[in-house]
Design a protein around this nucleic acid. Structure first.
Lengths: 147, 147
DNA sequence: CTATGTGCAAATCCTTTGCAATCCA
DNA sequence: TGGATTGCAAAGGATTTGCACATAG
């Protein structure tokens, strides 16, 4: 984790930005919740525990900054707000994972394999489109809700 | 098109709703723009040409209604508003098509083949998840923007 | 006639922005 | 010191809601 923070700091500095204490707190919260899908408000509430005087606007601004630097990704599950997750791009895994979304309980299950390579190749050939990323949501019913 | 309207009317009535003139206008606009991805505001402006005194709220309420009845689908391309498209579920094609989104010019290209069957089977087996639908967005650069 | 549908305006929700104060290199 | 960063409050944009009136069946 320290490694990641240092890395992010370096990346930001390379772009003329600073990794301020505020931003570091936000980054930590994101790292500590890698598996969750936090909204800006969620992040705000979590960061407030460490830095009670932080403003919501700062959270938004920082998330925007992290997005620009591809440090995090945002997804929209259609619940009215964007959600953010730490992007594991350090592992050389360019593509993000996919999500199974339960229509009934709203549970979100992550699928970590990337199964779209063939499809992408085909699509990019047929449509003359240079693929850089993709996002797949699969809707349905989870184990518990099928019953 | 008449056929579709009649069909929608029947479906609504079966659910205790009416296909009022207002709703029919909205439906027509959606049908006439099958290939586009209209926002609520877009629909509003188009319907106003036929029924100038329609209210934006009615458009929202009707779109919501159509969504409930699976008459249309909504997608979010991340431009700040939901976009709607007529769902071709009549043709027995349960799954909707996919979208290639150009990161540069914002162009959206539709891919009509459904290439995810295998993937879905695998995922549903591995995660004990009953798939009902999916949504795939592929990001990248279109032909013109690659240059 | 009665429930449903509608227009309008106000309210809401998430997010962004302006600005003065603060911080850090 | 000077530009970047921040908190606060206000603004913004999309969507929803309350309510009185209109309408369909």
């Amino acid at each position: 984790m320290k490694r990641v923070i240092a890395d992010v700091g370096e990346r930001l500095r390379a772009g003329e930005y600073k990794l301020t204490p505020r931003r570091e707190h936000i980054l930590k919260v994101l790292l500590e919740n890698k598996d969750k899908h936090l909204s800006a408000e969620d992040v705000y509430n979590l960061v407030k525990q460490k830095a009670p005087d932080i403003g919501l606007a700062t959270v938004y601004r920082t998330l925007e900054l992290f997005l620009d630097f591809d440090i995090i990704h945002s997804i929209d599950f259609g619940d009215g707000c964007k959600r953010y997750e730490f992007g594991n791009s350090e592992e050389g895994e360019q593509h993000r994972h996919h999500h199974l979304i339960c229509n009934r309980c709203g549970r979100i299950i992550e699928v970590n394999e990337d199964l779209l390579e063939d499809l992408e190749k085909r699509v990019s050939r047929e449509h003359d489109f240079t693929v850089t990323d993709h996002q797949l949501k699969i809707f349905g019913l989870c184990r518990d809700c099928v019953k």
